[in-house]
Design a protein around this nucleic acid. Structure first.
Length: 272
DNA sequence: ATGACCGACCATGTCGGA
């Protein structure tokens, strides 16, 4: 059966509920993975998601910053809320969808919010960039011996805050010293992808050299006119799910919705 | 500079985002 999975950095879930509703009603994903929910679990808008047909919810939130959530039409089993870099900063949640009710394969779903890394691309001068690099190193470690690497079915989505390929940014040359596209973080990002034997699902549908963006800065006067975007949001699938992805969509128009997030949803349909 | 921004919070600025 076809299961559609969406990922969206929502930049405050409570503020953004009007466009979350609009998205769920128009795109009808089975599962929505959110990042930057920016609220403690106690005040996450549960009831609104339930009314929209998404009663199964797993949360890893905190006050004010970061925070991830999985909301689903289908039931799942909660697996873990992993901690990275010895910080309790709500950047990961994993759940498992079991076989049955039309689903012929079980799979684990990881939802990540990787640190942005601040402005200065030097770990000696910028602790936020050091944190990002450490996080990526830990991601290599944690994925090298887990589900995907071991041939199990897994999907990893989220705001990974790295635009790894030349055409994941509007200007490769001008972005080489800009955090999100520096060679040092791209190298670690790629190593994590390889360690987990992950497939870059989005680029399977739209290979280079076509430009792919999921984020446009709030600072541009006209995001569409300047179109200086980056692909910061990703969907990875385990090698065991090679060929399972049927369709991929970047909902760019959501950047133009009222009171938008600076990220747009990415939706992938898997035949599972 | 590409950038004329945006959100949370015991708030009238500061921090984080990327």
């Amino acid at each position: 059966m076809v299961v559609s999975i969406a990922t969206w950095n929502i930049n405050s879930v409570r503020l953004r509920m009007p466009i979350v509703r609009k998205f769920l009603k128009s795109s009808e994903p089975d599962i929505l993975c959110l990042q930057e929910t920016k609220c403690p679990d106690e005040v996450f808008p549960h009831e609104q998601f339930e009314k929209l047909g998404y009663p199964h919810i797993a949360l890893h939130g905190q006050k004010g910053y970061h925070g991830v959530a999985v909301v689903s039409r289908r039931p799942f089993e909660s697996l873990s809320r992993d901690r990275f870099c010895d910080k309790e900063d709500a950047r990961h949640i994993a759940v498992k969808f079991n076989r049955g009710a039309g689903l012929s394969e079980s799979f684990t779903l990881h939802n990540f919010y990787i640190p942005a890394g601040g402005d200065i691309p030097d770990p000696a001068l910028n602790p936020k960039f050091a944190h990002k690099l450490n996080f990526l190193d830990e991601l290599v470690e944690c994925t090298a011996n887990r589900d995907s690497a071991n041939g199990k079915n897994a999907i990893l989505v989220g705001d990974l805050n790295v635009a790894p390929l030349e055409n994941d940014v509007w200007s490769h040359r001008q972005m080489l010293k800009v955090v999100s596209h520096t060679p040092v973080e791209v190298e670690k990002f790629t190593r994590a992808q390889e360690a987990g034997r992950w497939i870059d699902v989005m680029r399977g549908f739209i290979p280079e050299p076509e430009k792919l963006y999921t984020w446009w800065s709030y600072r541009a006067a006209d995001w569409l006119e300047s179109n200086r975007g980056r692909r910061l949001d990703h969907v990875w699938a385990s090698s065991s799910l090679k060929g399972a992805a049927q369709e991929m969509k970047i909902l760019s128009k959501a950047r133009g919705w009222e009171r938008p997030s600076d990220h747009v949803p990415v939706i992938v349909k898997f035949d599972l």
